[in-house]
Design a binder for these strands. Structure first.
Lengths: 343, 343
DNA sequence: ACCGGCTTTGCAAGCGTTTGCAAAATATTA
DNA sequence: TAATATTTTGCAAACGCTTGCAAAGCCGGT
């Protein structure tokens, strides 16, 4: 018999409350879950008993019986960068507002972990799943889909177009950034791409190409170095770009972290930003505005994305309606101090 | 009758596995929880059935029956700063290693939320609690204590000395920082304190005072401005310090975020760091090494603190031994570019 | 005073596990 | 070979709640 870890003070259950209030336990349950047909007088007595006893509902039992956990699972690659934290902040705010709890899983970009977490969460632990830039190898997303389990992808599109998604105008943002540099007179613009397994990275690359094309600048693959969104990778990528001759006069990094790595590398090489090299980023993470020089970048409304994702997910959960929707928020060029016109 | 949200495909339970494997459900349960007295042959058949059916255990049911959720609750003020994320990263790594799940709550420094979360988590949702810099108004900590519920405080001490705690040598760190500045020849050293409701803030203030005293520099309250660990507060506090005359020649900010705010304010005032003003921080958050100038600071082993806290907590959970322990990790002065000797 | 309908309450079954206990199967010993 | 010890398995109860169903209470209208 499941006898509790004896130390724990025999917890007060709904039965204790029922006894105290002189009603049946079902009535207590109904009061607690806001059922309408309970006499006002009874309701008060129950509430009083709850107060007196300091009763708090046992979520596990509630979920088991009710089939709903009120927990949302969040699967992220890691916590260690402003990009994720910003999205997470938005998610968190909205989740609190909608009275859900947040179960957090980090994958370290490990596909296996991604899949096993996702699976685990579907079995009772969570009512829905939020996936931030998952490494989309459709296998487990497939499973979610089949099980009709609510989930929303953040900043990553599903090539089959059958998942709910929140993202932003990556293509347009990259186009704007590149055009801005072109308008400043730059023509040799280096690009540090993102992790090419992610759709956003591809879209940004395309936006870059399109802007060049529209301005009669021919696309030069030598100016493009593949990155992975990490800061030290931005550093290395920049070192590569610095071996080119002639040098590029501007660098478009596919995210702020990489841009910061670029600035660092340039500083280490004794090149001044923006005087000798313009640098533009993407995301507008909080640090972007406080580094030196303050980073010109393309703003993604990260917290908004998080918030909207939660709303979409909860909507799916509560209406049992899982037809895929896609919301694309628009990006914004934020001009600060890291770019300068060609002399 | 708790009939599931009809869409969800009737989930496979332990009973299905049992039928498939031709054994009783208890046997399946035992195989799954690693009970030793199961014939090897049987075990294999069960495992095979599990594979075939794609069975995944339902955590809710398991916790309800077994009295253990394998979830650890983490209560933090917010996600939006490197300090928390670093600790969280350590926590996360260790939690994964020990096969627990992480339920995350943010309090926004709201006492009421802190308390209600803590309570909620104790009722079945989690097996233990990790509290990062909680606003110690003992009421709910008291409850935890009484219920003998496992918890560990991170970077905050319990004045009554009856909680398990992981922190670092705040006093010594502040002493070292101040002494370093003094040895560089500074005597007018501004201090931006942390949120004084937190023990670390007080300890750092004391360390600062002690270092002055030991070097025959009299403590001047005008040089100390109360802060709250936030970056913009560091900015404002610095503006205040800049109204003093004569000006301080160095500023010790009680954390890196505030130090970064200080650097920003100084830059906005046209004062060069470190040439015209030295700035030293505390924490060594990841950004500290990538800002410009790179920040000299006192390193706290934040991720270590997280990791150790998890170990202490899990130890409490698994041994049902909740006698308070305290682990204090040592800090380290990290010299970078934001301080310079007095000319 | 009686009936029909709505509101309010209680009972019991069930959610998917774990685990004590006892029975069954097997191994060991004299 | 019988008796005993040991390993292996199954049954049933419990974990703390939700909820369908039916009984009970109450109302106004007749």
């Amino acid at each position: 018999m499941g006898n509790r870890n004896s130390e724990k003070p025999s917890s007060i259950t709904i039965l204790d409350v029922a006894r105290e209030a002189g009603v049946s336990y079902s009535t207590v349950s109904r009061v607690l879950s806001g059922y309408e047909f309970v006499k006002e007088d009874t309701r008060q007595r129950v509430l009083a008993a709850v107060q007196d006893l300091g009763y708090v509902v046992n979520q596990q039992a509630r979920s088991l019986a009710g089939g709903k956990s009120n927990v949302i699972g969040l699967v992220v690659p890691g916590l260690d960068n402003g990009y994720i934290s910003e999205i997470a902040r938005g998610i968190d705010e909205e989740i609190v507002r909608l009275r859900y709890d947040l179960l957090l899983y980090t994958t370290r970009r490990d596909l296996h972990r991604e899949a096993s977490y996702a699976l685990k969460l579907t079995r009772g632990l969570a009512d829905g799943l939020l996936l931030i830039v998952p490494l989309l190898t459709t296998t487990y997303i497939q499973t979610l889909k089949q099980q009709n389990f609510p989930y929303v992808l953040i900043d990553q599109i599903d090539p089959t177009n059958s998942s709910s998604v929140v993202d932003s105008t990556n293509w347009q943002g990259a186009y704007d950034a590149t055009r801005y540099l072109i308008e400043l007179g730059h023509t040799r613009i280096g690009l540090i791409t993102g992790l090419m397994g992610l759709s956003s990275a591809g879209e940004r690359l395309e936006g870059y190409k399109a802007a060049l094309l529209d301005h009669q600048i021919s696309y030069n693959p030598a100016l493009v170095v593949e990155g992975d969104f990490a800061q030290h990778n931005g550093y290395q990528a920049t070192q590569k770009l610095l071996q080119l001759s002639p040098l590029p006069t501007a660098i478009f990094a596919s995210n702020d972290l990489a841009a910061m790595g670029a600035v660092e590398a340039l500083r280490d090489e004794g090149l001044s930003v923006p005087d000798e090299m313009s640098v533009i980023g993407f995301d507008d993470i909080p640090q972007a505005s406080i580094t030196y020089p303050r980073l010109t970048t393309v703003r993604q409304p990260l917290d908004q994305m998080g918030r909207i994702a939660v709303r979409m997910l909860v909507d799916q959960i509560e209406t049992s309606q899982t037809t895929p929707r896609r919301v694309t928020l628009s990006t914004n060029l934020i001009i600060r101090d890291s770019c300068r016109p060609m002399k």
